[in-house]
């Protein structure tokens, strides 16, 4: 499957045309994802939000709230860590929107737009390339958690499944940041607007405190919030307990978000001159 077709502009649409085109979109997106990864690795300061920041959150939550919520920091770490994995990867996705906005402002995307590639390729490339940030974030978080005394009660496969599930959700939600990145004029505005999206999603959950301590209206939101379901699923997968509802909710809501947000983001990108 590695035959490279040389561009023949005048060629009429052959039967295999549609498949060849999808193939090209995938290839172009991957080339652009490679660009994103290179850029990320070369500007380590851009990785603070997926390395230092999650560590700080863990420290703050565990030592400030641990005693009050769970009676001990050790117990609380077990409760918190699977859930905060979700917060970390979702926060990490904001950078995708900010970087895309910067690229467009700098004119780098004008070049891509003048090339015969799919309109969505630069966006897909950025989102795919940023997956590396999520993987790094989860590795840092698990490593730090283990150092503090966190222990998974299940096994390597369920833990990996929890990681995959949370990365999948982050991938879907990151299209919201792409959309915001297309709509905002300034990179700073992207950050601000992205927080407005993120806040109810990540904090309207049982991440830092059990759901049954919350007031009724908040509990109602928590039980439909897909991010909360992902956190519950991660807890189940890492500590044991029910996982089916959480996993299904996460997958279904992720696919729905993807189906709605990705086309909107691409449309916004097309409209942006």
């Amino acid at each position: 499957m590695t035959t490279t077709e040389t561009a023949a502009p005048s060629r009429a649409a052959a039967p295999g045309e549609e498949r060849r085109r999808t193939f090209r979109l995938a290839r172009h997106s991957l080339a652009l994802a490679g660009r994103s990864i290179r850029k990320t690795l070369r500007t380590p300061e851009q990785l603070l939000d997926v390395t230092l920041q999650p560590v700080m959150f863990v420290v703050v939550y565990v030592f400030l709230l641990g005693g009050a919520v769970a009676g001990s920091t050790g117990e609380y770490l077990q409760f918190l860590l699977p859930a905060i994995m979700v917060q970390t990867v979702l926060f990490g996705g904001m950078a995708t929107g900010v970087n895309l906005n910067t690229d467009i402002k700098k004119g780098v995307f004008d070049r891509f737009r003048s090339l015969p590639i799919g309109r969505s390729a630069p966006l897909i490339g950025s989102v795919l390339g940023d997956l590396i940030r999520y993987v790094l974030a989860e590795a840092v978080l698990l490593g730090f958690g283990y150092a503090l005394g966190f222990r998974a009660h299940t096994g390597i496969v369920p833990v990996l499944a929890a990681c995959l599930l949370t990365v999948f959700l982050a991938f879907c939600v990151s299209w919201a940041f792409v959309l915001v990145g297309m709509l905002m004029r300034e990179p700073g505005g992207v950050q601000g607007a992205a927080f407005v999206v993120l806040f109810p999603l990540t904090f309207g959950t049982s991440m830092v405190t059990p759901k049954d301590t919350l007031p009724g209206w908040l509990r109602a939101w928590v039980s439909v919030n897909p991010v909360n379901h992902a956190m519950e699923a991660a807890r189940g997968l890492m500590l044991g307990g029910p996982v089916a509802t959480g996993v299904v909710w996460t997958l279904v809501s992720g696919v729905v978000m993807l189906a709605v947000l990705a086309p909107l983001a691409v449309a916004a990108y097309r409209r942006r001159a």
């Binding site: 490279t4 077709e5 040389t6 561009a7 090209r24 290839r27 172009h28 080339a31 652009l32 490679g34 660009r35 290179r38 850029k39 070369r42 500007t43 700098k106 004119g107 780098v108 004008d110 070049r111 891509f112 003048s114 090339l115 015969p116 590639i117 390729a121």
Partner: peptide
């Protein structure tokens, strides 16, 4: 081919990487 008023090269990539990327995008 288009060369804009403000050079639209990717500053975080090397000169060679900039051109190779475009080559890859041109199949």
């Amino acid at each position: 081919g288009l060369t804009g008023q403000y050079a639209s090269v990717d500053e975080d990539l090397t000169g060679a990487e900039n051109l190779v990327l475009i080559g890859r995008l041109l199949d």
